[in-house]
Amino acid sequence: MSLHGSLKSTADFGRCYEAYYPMLCMIAYEYTRDKVLAEEMVGDTFLALWEKRESLEITTSVKNYLIKSTQNTCLQYLRKKKLQIRRISDETEWEHIPWSDDYPLGQLFEKELSDKIAQAIETLPPKCREVFQLSRIDEMSYSQIAGALQISENTVKTQLKTALSRIRNALRDYLPIVLILLANGRV
């Protein structure tokens, strides 16, 4: 189906914008965690759609096309931001400039991720949480943990594997933030 055929007029395009804009902003917000930035990403998506309307061929529904386009716009933005952060880090002797007081969004990302990690740890079963904290926070070896808790090293490994899996699962929606922090060596 051609886009031009489904959005024949400015009025049709306007109705499409009104119908999908709120949903697309929610999707973009999941990537950016910033309302204004999310709205900008969706605006860019609609602008690109308008500019290509005469030649664009859509093989799925307009809704699915817009969702995918919004996701791609957000991912492109995050990749670009990651490269900018890396370039700034490479070009200066002050490695943490993007996360300074002049970069509140970075601080917000870092705090939000830290809070989510703490929440994920708190939801672990008690023994699993204890093994995780001894390993990752107290930096104890498997044998030290096994001795302290009077359990086998295999049990320590199993509990730690379970903890990491649950934490990873709890943080799966925060991949964009993790990518930005990784780019700056913060994780």
Rank of each mutant, 00 (worst) to 15 (best):
65 Y>K: 01
120 A>S: 14
109 F>L: 11
120 A>W: 08
105 L>K: 10
118 A>M: 08
97 I>S: 07
101 D>Y: 01
87 R>Q: 15
77 Y>R: 14
57 E>Q: 07
120 A>T: 10
88 I>R: 11
66 L>H: 03
46 F>S: 03
107 Q>F: 07
80 K>C: 13
125 P>M: 14
112 E>S: 08
54 E>P: 01
121 I>N: 03
46 F>R: 05
61 S>A: 03
53 R>F: 00
53 R>P: 00
113 L>M: 13
96 H>A: 05
62 V>N: 01
63 K>N: 03
106 G>S: 10
80 K>A: 14
60 T>W: 01
92 T>P: 04
77 Y>H: 15
82 K>F: 00
88 I>K: 12
124 L>F: 08
69 S>Y: 02
105 L>H: 10
48 A>G: 06
93 E>I: 06
63 K>F: 02
66 L>C: 03
76 Q>R: 13
84 Q>K: 14
61 S>M: 03
93 E>R: 10
80 K>P: 07
113 L>S: 05
55 S>W: 07
80 K>H: 15
46 F>E: 04
41 M>Q: 13
83 L>S: 14
59 T>I: 02
35 K>F: 11
75 L>D: 09
112 E>T: 08
74 C>N: 07
117 I>D: 01
59 T>Y: 04
102 D>L: 10
82 K>L: 02
121 I>M: 10
47 L>R: 15
44 D>I: 07
57 E>R: 10
116 K>F: 02
105 L>R: 12
125 P>N: 13
72 N>H: 03
88 I>G: 06
87 R>T: 14
57 E>M: 06
55 S>H: 11
72 N>L: 04
121 I>K: 13
44 D>L: 13
96 H>W: 06
77 Y>C: 07
37 L>D: 02
42 V>K: 00
63 K>E: 09
103 Y>H: 09
64 N>Y: 07
121 I>E: 11
102 D>W: 04
